[in-house]
């Protein structure tokens, strides 16, 4: 009992930076969805059922451009497919006795949850994962409703400043790991550089630059660090 309480607390605390980062973005989604013509229920339902920031904004944009439902859904599939890679990676870290909960855990695998959870030391337990996901989910859903109802109450300067939050979190997750491991440093930089180059080349469908970057850089890792691994054996 005490152990699960500790795990839940840890999960909620780990989710706090995400909660801070999500709230203003979710508010912006709520505000924008109103201008596009969604009702409050539809706006909140969007965040309740989809829970994927970038694609939700993309959908609003496409709606306002008059793009059809089928095409928006297809684009969403492409954009959110990166989570397939993230789920695949994180599934190796999750304790197998929590099988019953995996379909719920899978629902909340966002970029941010993935980043926080996959660099947590050791295996991931159910209580940690679910409480981490619950607080981030609540921030996303409540922020959406809040934005829709209350609108632009945050001063622009604060809203803009908070745009740095999730990126700062990604940096703060990565840096201590890259400091410890040359592999992590090289692979993350490589992946970023590939992603940057792909942005300039600009030929892949939306959302696939990051997928190709992850696959390419991780494959380079297989080639590059093979020797190192053998030496350890």
């Amino acid at each position: 009992m005490e152990k699960s309480l500790k795990e839940i607390k840890e999960g909620m605390a780990s989710g706090l930076p995400i909660v801070i980062g999500y709230f203003p973005i979710a508010m912006a989604f709520g505000i924008l969805s109103k201008t596009v013509g969604l009702t409050l229920n539809e706006s909140v339902l969007f965040s309740l059922l989809v829970f994927a920031g970038a694609s939700q904004f993309m959908a609003l944009n496409l709606i306002s451009l008059g793009v059809g439902v089928g095409e928006i859904i297809l684009t969403t599939l492409l954009v959110n497919f990166r989570h397939f890679l993230m789920s695949a990676s994180i599934s190796r870290k999750i304790k197998k006795e929590f099988k019953r909960w995996l379909s719920l855990i899978a629902f909340g695998i966002t970029d941010e949850v993935f980043s926080v959870a996959s660099f947590k030391k050791g295996t991931l337990n159910k209580n940690f994962m679910l409480s981490l996901q619950l607080v981030t989910y609540l921030s996303w859903v409540i922020g959406t409703g809040f934005g829709f109802l209350i609108g632009n109450i945050l001063p622009t300067i604060l809203k803009n400043s908070m745009g740095i939050a999730l990126y700062a979190m990604f940096v703060a997750i990565l840096v201590p790991e890259a400091k410890k491991s040359k592999e992590i440093l090289i692979l993350s930089l490589l992946s970023g550089l590939i992603n940057l180059s792909l942005k300039f080349i600009n030929i892949l469908p939306k959302g696939w630059n990051i997928i190709i970057s992850i696959i390419l850089a991780s494959s380079v890792g297989l080639l590059l660090f093979k020797k190192g691994e053998k030496n350890h054996e």
Partner: peptide
């Protein structure tokens, strides 16, 4: 073993691509 290692490389490579170049455009 190889595929498991590939999966282990995903967290750092995903973070790299989530940060670069998006982070530089965080503030419009």
């Amino acid at each position: 073993k190889k595929f498991e290692r590939f999966l282990l490389y995903i967290p750092p490579t995903a973070l790299g691509a989530l940060i670069i170049p998006g982070a530089f455009e965080a503030i419009p």
